[in-house]
Design a protein around this nucleic acid. Structure first.
Lengths: 342, 342
DNA sequence: ATGAAAGCGCTAACAC
DNA sequence: GTGTTAGCGCTTTCAT
């Protein structure tokens, strides 16, 4: 695919027109110091006159950097791509890069073909580093990138002993706080709608639920826990339906994600139960269902802006200290956003 | 930001190890013909041994191509980024590029800074072409790219006389078909919830509504038309609330987007009107509200897979025929998906 | 402060 | 078929 349009002016032509050497032009376009003001202006004049734009391939080749980072979605189930969580992360990372000359590139890696292509792209030096989101436990991509020596930062981790630099929220602590809140409000029979337990994030949130019960000396009945197949509304609805079937006496529910919680609300409404008067639902991620008829959800907010900023910061640090330092991690506090009067 | 990790083997080292010239290695990695099989294997062996990966900056510089295309979201309101419409387009374009060596790069252009940065990136030769989606009427980006001589294809158009190559759905025809369907089913008082009329797509859909009424000889009362501020569910809800306030006798509604329609359903439910028994709602984009309590919506489906394929095809054609041919456009048929029994 | 020159690693044209 | 060579357009010493 593709030939580059011809006739693009080069740095050399700019130099000729401005009556200076190539080095000087290079200094000007890179805002380097040590150029007389009058010279600088002459060069800028020439640049404007010719409509010069630097050839980034040449710059990359000579300068050993791409001025770009990739943010990769490794999500085979592409419907999740539209989830508020992901869009917020994308924007948080974008914001974190606003004041830099770094171009953010989102890429989709859904298949083996796409993974191979992306690894070649990244190893080929087209990006300075890689940010990964929504990584599943068995995903080989993080290790491939890390082994290739590419600065890599993950959002979340694949397991308890992750070997790639990552940023995560305090999922267990957040869940513990949420359930503790329900207990303090007098709830005793609290169900849990878990995410898919092959994802570490789901394990952590469920662990937090159990820890809160234990701390309060409340028995942890396994029939109160339902595992959703994924983090979708539909899973939440199914889980909740099962839950109230088995436990009509339920007086609260902890859902491991906002969408699971939204589905749970749906199921409660369909079952004719008033919400949240007789069942309190709590979610994760500070997401509010769009429909105004639903009661607001008390949620555990992940600091997504901070997560984005931190990912970018860690990446920049890895870029500075090459060869790479050992992997590192940052775990950020979550915040309980109380919204209902359950 | 960033230094490239050192010690990366080069093509030259591969050539030395394999005992061949650089040209031969180049032919092998580019799958060019005219290399003896035994030689090819020797080279591949050397490549594997060294873990060689081509430097894409050098390839770009010498080969005048990037093997990448950008798909740009020029949407200041980033919440829309998660809309099913956009995610489906992203995946359709991704699918269309599956069998090519071309890397798809999604980029966000929300601010002037980001626009400037992206134009430098694209003009700098880091992509072979640009696909644009969600372009607003006053957006300068398409012209900037076109003037820079970059192959550019838009999804949708900014006005009736668009000057940049684009692919669009037959919005007027689709809307006309939808409203005609409602009329044929005996509805007479049909409201319209329009999108923001500063967007051409909204104008077309509203025009289709009016044409259908005219064809059927039904009076087109302006009080039956409400313009939403945007394409969101919330706008749809507000518009619908106003509509039934003014016209309790309403027996059908045409909404210019799926989300507007979803909002309309919401408002009807809140107003205590049965849906769709006494008011038929029709949407656009083949989107179904997630909640199972809502009735399925009859929609006008845009052929998104085909749109994605067509955009990629047009782009490739522009890349082949350089210097660029005149701009072109393709308008694709929509499909009425009948779902309710209104 | 600025010009000159040496690459960066590859493709493509040309020789053999 | 395969080796050789001349750039691609820039950054970065190194002189001056």
């Amino acid at each position: 695919m593709g030939r580059q349009r011809p006739g693009t002016p080069t740095l050399e032509e700019v130099a000729a027109l401005a009556g200076v050497g190539r080095g000087t032009v290079s200094r000007v376009i890179n805002n380097a110091s040590g150029v007389r003001d009058s010279t600088r202006r002459a060069v800028q004049q020439a640049i404007a006159e010719l409509g010069y734009v630097p050839n980034l391939a040449a710059r990359s080749l000579a300068g050993h950097r791409a001025d770009a980072v990739a943010l990769v979605m490794t999500e085979p189930d592409w419907r999740l791509f539209g989830e508020p969580f992901f869009t917020e992360v994308v924007h948080a990372v974008g914001d974190a890069l606003t004041d830099t000359p770094v171009q953010l590139l989102l890429t989709l890696v859904r298949t083996d073909t796409e993974r191979r292509r992306f690894v070649e792209y990244a190893r080929g030096g087209r990006v300075d580093g890689v940010l990964l989101m929504s990584v599943h436990a068995e995903d080989p991509l993080p290790d491939m990138l890390a082994k290739a020596g590419l600065p890599t930062v993950m959002l979340g981790r694949r397991s308890g002993d992750e070997t790639v630099t990552y940023v995560d929220a305090d999922n267990a602590g957040g869940a513990r706080g949420a359930v503790t809140y329900l207990l303090k409000r007098g709830r005793t029979t609290i169900g849990a709608i878990s995410g898919p337990l092959d994802m570490y994030v789901a394990q952590c949130r469920l662990r937090g639920y159990r820890e809160a019960l234990e701390l309060a000396g409340v028995a942890d009945r396994s029939s109160l826990v339902v595992e959703g197949g994924d983090f979708t509304e539909e899973s939440g609805r199914r889980a909740m339906t099962g839950l109230i079937g088995r436990h009509p006496e339920l007086d609260a529910v902890f859902a491991a994600s906002d969408t699971l919680a939204a589905g749970a609300l749906n199921a409660l409404r369909a079952a004719g139960r008033r919400v949240p008067q007789d069942v309190a639902v709590i979610g994760f991620d500070d997401f509010q269902p769009a429909r105004p008829t639903d009661p607001p959800l008390t949620t555990v907010r992940q600091p997504l802006e901070e997560i984005g900023r931190t990912m970018v910061r860690l990446l920049q640090e890895e870029l500075e200290n090459s060869p790479a330092v050992a992997w590192r991690h940052v775990i950020l506090r979550t915040e309980l956003v109380i919204r209902d009067s359950a």
